[in-house]
């Protein structure tokens, strides 16, 4: 894992290498070089499989972190390629030309985080939600509890209990 990175260090500005465990390493790549880098991993280093694309909302840093988990099925090693992008007008280059299924992940990210992937097939179509008009629900500035209370008629009198204590009280009230 480290060797690959050392080899590629000269070509790509790779930061924050972190060996999570024997077969998984996290690296951070610049947005502009990311697609190039992933392409190289796929074509020359044998990382043929895209496991998932997901995102993390760094509200405080005003950034989105995109994580591409790619896997080399022969060596069974995986990289998490992390790309930090701006939160305002979030946009990232699409990689559906490398893996067709990437388009589905990108569609989901667009719906849930509002990250745009221009050129990705069907990226503007609704994925899970029907008729969602709020800000994308997975953004941390979307207050889901508040939204739920305003929208879904919460039942009055609903109380919260710590399950263990509640059951203890219920079953063994004397103790």
């Amino acid at each position: 894992m480290k060797e690959i990175i050392d080899r590629l260090q000269e070509l790509y500005p790779i930061g924050d290498f972190k060996q999570q465990n024997k077969s998984l390493a996290l690296i951070t790549v610049d947005k502009d070089k990311a697609v190039d880098f992933i392409t190289r991993l796929k074509n020359e280093e044998g990382f043929l499989h895209l496991s998932i694309i997901t995102a993390v909302d760094w509200l405080e840093k005003n950034k989105f972190q995109l994580s591409y988990l790619i896997n080399n099925p022969t060596t069974k090693n995986s990289f998490v390629v992390r790309v930090m992008i701006d939160r305002e007008n979030a946009e990232m280059f699409s990689i559906h030309h490398l893996w067709e299924q990437a388009a589905t992940y990108q569609r989901e990210l667009k719906e849930m985080f509002g990250i745009d992937f221009p050129g990705s097939p069907g990226v503007d179509k609704p994925f899970i939600l029907e008729g969602w008009h709020e800000i994308p629900p997975y953004r941390r500035d979307f207050d889901t509890k508040n939204y739920s209370e305003e929208t879904y008629f919460p039942r009055e009198g609903r109380t919260k209990n710590v399950p263990a204590e509640y059951m203890k009280q219920k079953l063994y009230p004397d103790e």
Binding site: L129, E134, P137, F142, T144, K145, Y147, S148, E149, Y152, F153, P154, R155, R158
Partner: peptide, 16 residues
């Protein structure tokens, strides 16, 4: 279906 259960504060699940 009664009060939302464990999804009581979800953005996409009804409560009652």
């Amino acid at each position: 279906t009664i009060n939302g259960g464990m999804y009581w504060d979800s953005y996409n699940t009804i409560n009652r």
